[in-house]
């Protein structure tokens, strides 16, 4: 019974939040311009299911496109940065500087360059999400146990050997761990960019609905965002478990 309760807990909490929300809206007679009740949002979702689905799909693919670019570029840059201390030292301040820029500030530039459309959203998703991948992969490479490196070098292993046999497999749990963070960031990037300037996507839909005072539809958009975010996070978490399971298992029962 206890296990059952535990696995059902997320549902209890989610449903509980909606029940409280609905009750508050009805009790205090909150205007649906301010905060629409879940029932009104549900009505909007049913009514506008077609545009919601279409725009969700646009946001999904721009996010994924940006995310995949970030994975490829982040993995590459992480390996380069983790490879040599000199490159690490040289690039680190530049990357910190770049990462400190709020990406919202970059979106107008991207729109100027590429026009209104999906490309700015993809690029924003990419720019905002590659950083944690780089840092994680580089950390995984940089924290190889010195003794282990000595063992291999005393065998005549080249730097490439050490990387292939130890560095890269070792950094994989870091890499897959960073994907969870990166996909969430990519999603934020895509939606921010769509909100500022786009002709499709959930961000665009919500801006449009907002300017028409259709608050229930705005919130319906938020719901779609939440669902999409949870699904993408769950998928990357699953990939992490599958690809680097040894890291979880070895933490759970380290030989004493």
């Amino acid at each position: 019974m206890k296990i059952d309760n535990e696995s059902l807990a997320p549902w209890y909490f989610t449903i509980g939040i909606f029940v409280v929300w609905e009750a508050v809206c009805r009790l205090f007679n909150v205007s649906d311009f301010i905060l629409p009740a879940p029932s009104q949002i549900a009505v909007a979702m049913v009514r506008y299911w077609k545009p919601l689905l279409y725009n969700s799909f646009v946001t999904l693919w721009t996010t994924l496109a940006g995310f995949l670019m970030a994975v490829a570029f982040g993995l590459f840059l992480g390996l380069v940065v983790g490879w040599s201390k000199a490159i690490y030292r040289g690039l680190y301040p530049v990357m910190i500087g770049f990462n400190s820029i709020p990406k919202v500030a970059v979106v107008p530039i991207l729109i100027m360059w590429f026009g209104i459309g999906e490309i700015p959203a993809i690029l924003t998703a990419f720019l905002i999400s590659f950083f944690p991948i780089v840092v994680n992969v580089a950390t995984g490479l940089a924290t190889i146990e010195p003794e282990l490196e000595d063992v291999l070098r005393a065998l005549g292993a080249s730097k490439l050997d050490v990387m292939r046999k130890v560095g890269i497999p070792r950094s994989m749990p870091y890499f897959f761990g960073s994907l969870k963070v990166a996909i969430t960031l990519a999603f934020v990037g895509a939606v921010v960019s769509e909100t500022i300037g786009a002709n499709a996507g959930l961000g665009h839909l919500m801006t449009q609905a907002g300017s028409n005072f259709q608050m229930p539809l705005v919130f319906a958009g938020l719901m779609a965002l939440a669902v999409e975010g949870i699904v993408m996070y769950a998928v990357t978490a699953l990939i992490e478990q599958r690809m680097a399971g040894w890291a979880f298992r070895s933490q759970n029962s380290a030989g004493g």
């Binding site: 003794e147 063992v151 065998l155 005549g156 046999k165 130890v166 070792r170 040894w246 890291a247």
Partner: peptide, 18 residues
């Protein structure tokens, strides 16, 4: 340079967990 004929073992076993 590295002698290439040596085997080494340390206080920590340093086995690769994967």
């Amino acid at each position: 340079g590295p002698v290439k004929v040596a085997g080494m073992a340390f206080q920590n076993a340093n086995l690769l967990p994967w």
